[in-house]
Each structure stands twice: as C-alpha cells, then as structure tokens.
C-alpha cells in the first residue's frame, strides 16, 4: 500500500510540477522593430575627401623653378599648411619659386632652405597649401616593401606609381652623405621631390634620382626626420640671377 501511495504522490507531484514549466503567455508585440538611424556623416570621413582626391594626392604639389634662363619643375609634399619638402636640386638657381596644388591653385614661395647632407630642401609658402599633410614613418622601408610614388613626372599631370624597395644603394649623384634606397618605381624628370608612401600611407622617402635602368633612388625618411629634427643643418637658398 505504501508503495502505491508513494507512487501516487510522486505522480501528483510530477503532474503539478508540470504547471511550473508551462510556457508563459507571450508579451505584447514589440514596436521598436526598426532601430533609429545612427549614421553620423562625420564618423566616416577617413575614406572620403572634400574633393574626391585622396590625402596623398592633396598633399603633393608641383614646384616650378623659374630660373634666370629657363623654367624647371619638380614635386614636393606638404608637411604642414605652410611647409613642404622637395629636393635641393629642384630649387637650385631659382630666381622665383612657385607651387601648384593638385586642383590648380598657384602659391608663391617665401623662402627655401637646403642642406648639404642630402638632396633635400624645405620650402615655406606664403599661403596655405591645403588640409592634407604628410605622415612620416618612424623607420625606413626594407627590401621588398611595396611603395607608392605620387608626383608630377615631366611636369605633367599628377600621377601615382607603384614599386618595390630594392634595398640600400650607392648615391648615383653623389650629393648624399647617408644611405639611399633604390626602388623599382618608374619616375621621370619632374618627379624629384615626390613622396614615397608605404602601404599605410606614411611617407618613407623622397624621390631624388633615377638611372638608365629605370630604377629610382630615394632619400630615406630617417634622413628626412634627422634634418627636420636639426634645423641647423638647413641653410637658406639664395635667389636671383
């Protein structure tokens, strides 16, 4: 009898415990199916620019050197709103220097400074260059690194060229004290002073020469950083005929 009583009690307990696991009645249907739009136009401006050009294009300028007898061109890139970097030989024998931006603005140059350490010149402009400035890398590129060169070859339109770092090389011109790097990027006269960018868009060098094998030579960014850290190495460039 006790067994049956226990069994019946267990059955009752199990049956009543089923009430505890009964599915609850559904709640009211939610009304917030569609979330509020949270698109903020200011949060995704990294990939966009005001005029459709990327930062490398906007920071790269064309340098015109009006000499006493003739006109030559080169390339430079903005370090800040009023300072840009180019090659020393771009500003040599200049009677007048002018800078043209990617969108055709013409900016006069106030002063130019050069150094004998490397084929580097620092130019100060009279007006703002724009809103895009170079970000210098901390370390030099190594052999095999992919690079991009943005410049004005032959004084023509703004061009982007890809290449690979070949490694340290002897200076073909002989004007550099430190080590230079050879690349496979094809450059032309007028590309001198072009920024060399790595995959992250950081400046890793400055184009300054080429050879007959269409190899280009760049001043590594470490040299540029050293020059910028030591202004005493820069001397003003004289102008006039």
């Amino acid at each position: 009898m006790n067994r049956r009583l226990i069994a019946a009690s267990l059955a009752a307990v199990l049956a009543l415990s089923g009430c505890a696991v009964l599915p609850a009645a559904p709640e009211a249907l939610p009304t917030d199916w569609v979330p509020e739009a949270t698109v903020d136009p200011d949060t995704n401006t990294a990939a966009l620019s005001p005029d459709g050009f990327n930062a490398a294009q906007r920071m790269t300028v064309r340098v015109r050197n009006i000499e006493c007898r003739g006109v030559s061109t080169g390339t430079g890139f903005a370090l800040d709103a009023f300072t840009l970097v180019t090659n020393r030989h771009v500003v040599d024998h200049a009677k007048n220097l002018q800078v043209s931006t990617h969108d055709g603005r013409l900016i006069d140059v106030e002063a130019a400074s050069v150094t004998t350490v490397a084929d580097i010149a620092i130019i100060t402009t009279a007006a703002s260059l724009g809103g895009a400035f170079a970000v210098r890398a901390e370390e030099d590129p190594v052999e095999g690194d992919a690079i991009t060169v943005v410049g004005y070859p032959n004084g023509g339109r703004l061009t982007t060229t890809a290449g690979v770092i070949l490694g340290p090389a002897d200076d073909p011109i002989g004007g550099a004290v430190g080590t230079v790097l050879a690349t496979t990027a094809v450059v032309e006269p007028g590309s001198s002073g072009s920024p060399v960018l790595n995959a992250d868009g950081e400046v890793v060098g400055v184009v300054y020469a080429k050879n007959d094998a269409d190899q280009s030579f760049i001043v590594p960014v470490s040299t540029l950083n050293s020059l910028l850290a030591q202004p005493s190495l820069l001397v003003p460039e004289s102008t006039g005929c």
Binding site: D51, R69, G70, V71, H102
Partner: peptide
C-alpha cells in the same frame, strides 16, 4: 567625380604647363 577629378588634374596640369610656358615666354 572621377571624370571631373581627372579633368581637374588635366586642367591643373595644363594650367601649370601654361604657367610654365608663360614664365618661359616671359623669359
């Protein structure tokens, strides 16, 4: 926009070239 930018670069290059020529012609 790409076409306009390309055209802008062309025009800018032409302008720069024209300025070069102007400077050269002035010389």
């Amino acid at each position: 926009l790409s076409a306009s930018n390309s055209r802008l670069l062309d025009v800018s290059a032409e302008k720069a070239d024209a300025l070069d020529n102007d400077a050269w012609n002035q010389q």
